[in-house]
Design a protein around this nucleic acid. Structure first.
Lengths: 118, 118
DNA sequence: ATGACTATCTATAATGT
DNA sequence: TACATTATAGATAGTCA
């Protein structure tokens, strides 16, 4: 975005991609920090990258540690489905929408209200 | 950041805060999209705000739906500890560091390798 | 590879409708 | 309240040390 506008696609040059990743990760986390402070909301960003073995989460609600532990405990092969095959996984990710989750949650709530389950 | 620099603290004016939140949320998600595409990593951003009843997640790995369901199924009072008392919660959030999680994961891995548990 | 620099691009606060 | 505009603050790609 600067000395020259870049195309919005995977950066093929690896060292370059790594540098960009580092810079942008910092920017992203700063933005997350700002929106939390300015707007009084809570949130977190989670990034799984092949550059780090561990997912980078910052900041994060305690609840998420559980799911992440579970993630880390998956057999290596399964983890790799999510950490290595980015192209496929990204495609899958993007095909989900947050609306799908909201529908799920509403459905569950409806069930609960009908059955009086706590 | 623009017609006038703003202080990095909670915006007290509510409608203004809401507008800022909406704009910045959009920016954040765009940034997340960009880093995923440019750098070939996967990630997600989760924002719990009092503006929306549902946490806003975008995009998200299927694994996370489970923990979020669990979150939504917490008794209302418990959920509110995380969604309403922002000030307290933010303080707590920030006091955590991603290093703490990494230590945990390493510890668990060490245990596993010593006990041969899968 | 890391860090600093900086020219340029992007995000966005304030304003207006 | 929700868009559109726009001038300025902020993020960052390329470069160099």
């Amino acid at each position: 975005m600067v000395r020259r506008k870049i195309k919005h696609e995977l950066i093929s040059n690896e060292p370059k991609r790594k540098v960009t990743f580092k810079k942008r990760k910092g920017g992203l986390l700063k933005k997350m920090n700002e929106i939390m402070t300015l707007c009084g909301v809570m949130g977190c960003a989670i990034i799984y990258s092949s550059f780090n073995n561990q997912p980078k989460i910052w900041p994060f609600p305690p609840e998420l540690t559980r799911v992440l532990h579970r993630f880390m405990e998956l057999p290596k092969e399964e983890r790799e489905r999510y950490t290595v095959d980015h192209k496929t996984f990204l495609g899958r990710l993007i095909s989900w929408s947050s609306n799908a989750l909201e529908r799920e949650i509403k459905k569950n709530r409806g069930l609960k209200s009908r059955t009086n389950i706590k």
